[in-house]
Nucleic acid binder design. Structure first.
Lengths: 147, 147
DNA sequence: TTTAATTAAATCGCACACGATCAAATCGTG
DNA sequence: CACGATTTGATCGTGTGCGATTTAATTAAA
C-alpha cells in the first residue's frame, strides 16, 4: 500500500510525456497546416534545413525513428515536391534525401513559429531550458536501457 | 540571427517530449507484451482499475483522446475479453466500459512494473516528481492554448 | 409538444510508429 | 576471388491518433 503512489509516479511520468507530446503537436498543427506538413514531416525538414543531403539512416538516428516509419513519410514529402530521394552513387544501399527549391522555401514560412510557441508554453526561457535538459536526460536513460 | 537558438528551443522542447514519450513506450513494451496490451490500452486499464464502469467520454477526457481513437481501441480490449461495452440504460447515448474478471486479473501481473520503470528512468523520486509536475504544468498551458 | 439544437459514440480517411521480414549492396575473411 | 555476414532501405501487418462527418438519443425552445 505504501508504494501505491510511487507506482503511480512511474505510470504518471510516462503518461505526462505522452499527453504533453500530443498537446504540443496540437499547438503546432494550425501552424503546420499552412505549410501542408505534419509534425514528423516538419522534424525531417528542420534536419534538412540544418544539413541537406542526409541519408535515411542519419535522419532516423536523430529522430529515433525506423526506416519503416521514415520511408513512407519521405515518399510523401517527395510527392509534395519538398525533397528528392536518390541513391548514393558511392554506396547504392543508402538513399540521400535532398531539399528541392520548394522545400528550402518552406523555411521562410516558419519565422513566426517561435512567438506562437512561446506564448503557448507560457513559461520563461530559463525554466523551459531546464525542463528540456531534464527531459533529454530522462530520454538518454531510457534509450540506454532499451538500447 | 540572435533568436536562432531560441527558435531551436521551441522546436527542441516539443521534440524532447515527442522522443522521450516514444522512448518510454519502448521501455514499457516488453512488460506489456506479457499482458498482450499496448501502451494506450494499458492506460485505459489503469483508469478502469482505479474506477470501473466509466463512459467513453470520461476515459477520453482523462487521456486527452477522441472517441475516434478510443472506440476501436475499446473494441480490441473487448475482443481480448478484458472489458464489456454496454449502453447506459439511463442515457442510451453513452457507452459504459466495465472490466471483466479477466481484465481485473491483469492488474496482478503489473506488480513488478514499478521496479523495472524506476531502474529504466535512472532518477531519484524527488527529481522525477518535480519533472512530472513541470511537464504537467506545461501540458496544462498547451491545452489551455489549444482550447 | 413538435421541432430545433446539443451531446455521445461511431465511422471513415489519412498519417504515423514499430516489429518482422525481405532484397540488394557492401564488407570481410579465407 | 569467393562466399558468408553485415548493412541499408523497403515492405507488410497491426495499432494508434485525429479531423470531419454521421447517427442516435437527449434537451431546449417555440
Amino acid at each position: 500500500m505504501s508504494d501505491a503512489p510511487a507506482l503511480k509516479l512511474g505510470d504518471f511520468i510516462c503518461f505526462s510525456l505522452y499527453s504533453a507530446s500530443h498537446a504540443f503537436t496540437r499547438v503546432y498543427k494550425p501552424l503546420l497546416d499552412r505549410l501542408g506538413l505534419t509534425y514528423p514531416q516538419y522534424l525531417v525538414m528542420v534536419l534538412l534545413w540544418e544539413k541537406d543531403g542526409q541519408t535515411v539512416g542519419q535522419i532516423g538516428e536523430q529522430l529515433f525513428l525506423e526506416s519503416s516509419t521514415l520511408t513512407p513519410l519521405l515518399k510523401r514529402l517527395e510527392a509534395a515536391g519538398h525533397v528528392r530521394r536518390e541513391r548514393n552513387p558511392a554506396d547504392e544501399r543508402q538513399v540521400l534525401i535532398r531539399l528541392t527549391d520548394s522545400g528550402r522555401a518552406l523555411k521562410d514560412q516558419t519565422t513566426d513559429f517561435f512567438d506562437h510557441l512561446m506564448e503557448a508554453v507560457g513559461m520563461g526561457v530559463e525554466e523551459l531550458t531546464e525542463l528540456r535538459d531534464n527531459i533529454q536526460a530522462l530520454r538518454a536513460n531510457l534509450n540506454r536501457f532499451a538500447g
